[in-house]
Simulated scan of single mutants.
Amino acid sequence: MYQDQEQDREQNHGQAINEIEGFLLWEAEKDRARTRAEAFCAGLPWLTDSQRREVELRYCQDQRDASRAYLERISVRSATLRTEYEGVYRALRRRLITALLSGSVAVAALLAMTAVGLTAR
């Protein structure tokens, strides 16, 4: 029971770390979009201040939308690969266990035959 609680605690810590990391990565992405928007607007010196703010806002929103769509595609692909790899891992594990058991049976049979052969003399 204590081990189960410890595993749950470790899983919760891992989940919390993943959430914090995701939050920090998203904030960095938003900062990057803001920096790119400012650089984009710097190349348009004829914009008024209100136009500049509007362009920066729209640029940032477009960048965030593109980033979110990209991250969602990555997430779906990661889940697909994880499912696929888990299936392959299970199949390999079954093969390994089957081979190990078959080898053990073969060794046991060989030892039994050797023992019978030695006692028959």
Score class of each variant (00 low, 15 high):
Y2C: 00
Q3Y: 00
Q3H: 01
D4G: 02
D4S: 03
E6A: 00
D8Y: 00
R9V: 03
E10L: 15
E10I: 07
Q11S: 05
Q11I: 01
H13M: 12
H13N: 11
I17L: 14
N18A: 06
N18G: 14
I20Y: 04
E21H: 04
G22Y: 06
W26R: 15
W26C: 07
E27N: 12
D31M: 09
A33I: 08
R36W: 14
E38W: 00
A42L: 11
G43H: 01
L44S: 09
L47K: 01
D49L: 12
D49P: 04
D49K: 02
Q51I: 00
R52Q: 03
R52E: 12
V55L: 10
E56S: 02
E56C: 14
D62C: 08
R64E: 10
D65T: 15
S67D: 04
R68F: 10
Y70I: 03
Y70K: 04
L71S: 14
E72N: 05
E72Q: 14
S75E: 14
S75Q: 11
V76G: 02
T80N: 15
T80K: 13
L81D: 07
E84C: 15
G87K: 04
Y89N: 09
Y89D: 00
Y89C: 04
Y89M: 07
R90K: 13
A91I: 01
A91L: 08
R95V: 04
T98E: 13
S104G: 14
V105F: 11
V105M: 03
V107F: 03
A109T: 06
L110E: 10
A112V: 04
V116F: 09
G117I: 01
